[in-house]
Simulated scan of single mutants.
Amino acid sequence: MDNERAVVGKLVFHGTANIFISFFCGAMIAAAAMGQIDSQKQDWVLAHMESLINGMMLFIVAGFIGKLAMSAKSQLIAVYCLIDMAYCNTIFGIGRGATGALGYEFNDNLANNITALAGQIGVPLAVVAFLLIGLAAWRTR
């Protein structure tokens, strides 16, 4: 029971952190729209939505992960993959908002490369996490 509470606590804490980051990005949408900062509004909308959706996803997983037939090791791997994925996606969005870098491919621009790396690391982390969760759901059914 203590392990399940710790896992849920980790997911909810990092989900909350991502939600607060989305609040900041929401303020940046307004600043970009009013011309107070030199950024594109749509880049900050992406950053806002990345943080918001990933935070909510961590909350959702916290609600059911303890009910799946998962070993403690698989559960821990899935949880940290999800948390890391959420922050990678958040960094991707903020990188786009703060620098205007597209981050879809690597080039000679450092800001773009950091944005691209964050975006590309998040994908395999999500695949690992949801593969483990899907297999556990299959076993639990």
Rank of each mutant, 00 (worst) to 15 (best):
F20G: 11
A17P: 01
K10D: 08
M57C: 07
A6Q: 13
N112R: 03
M85L: 13
G55N: 13
K73R: 14
A126D: 06
V61Q: 02
H48K: 02
E50H: 15
I114R: 04
A33N: 09
A136W: 03
N107M: 08
L46K: 13
V123K: 12
M70L: 15
M56E: 05
Y87M: 09
I94Q: 01
G26L: 09
L102K: 09
L76N: 14
Q75R: 15
G122E: 01
G119H: 05
Q120M: 15
P124K: 08
K67E: 10
F24S: 00
M34S: 11
T99Q: 06
M34D: 12
A101T: 07
E105H: 15
I29L: 09
M1V: 12
M28E: 13
G103W: 01
Y80Q: 12
I65A: 01
G134T: 06
M49I: 14
T90V: 07
G119R: 00
G134P: 04
I83R: 00
G103N: 08
I91W: 01
D108W: 05
W138S: 13
F24N: 00
M49N: 12
L117S: 13
G119D: 06
A137I: 09
Q40H: 10
L11S: 05
D108G: 08
A78W: 03
V79I: 12
A101Y: 01
A116V: 05
Y104R: 11
C81E: 02
Q40T: 06
A32K: 10
N54R: 11
G26P: 06
R5P: 06
F130W: 12
N18C: 14
L11W: 05
S22E: 05
K10F: 09
C81L: 09
I94R: 00
N107H: 13
G134N: 13
L125R: 03
I121G: 10
I121Q: 05
Q42S: 13
G15L: 01
A69C: 07
L52F: 10
I94G: 00
M85Y: 12
C25Y: 01
E4Q: 11
T140H: 07
T90E: 00
F23E: 07
L125G: 04
A136D: 04
A78F: 04
F130V: 04
G93T: 07
V128S: 07
T16F: 11
W138A: 15
D38H: 15
Q36D: 11
M1G: 14
V79T: 15
A111I: 04
A129R: 05
G100L: 02
F106D: 02
F13W: 08
M56D: 02
M34C: 09
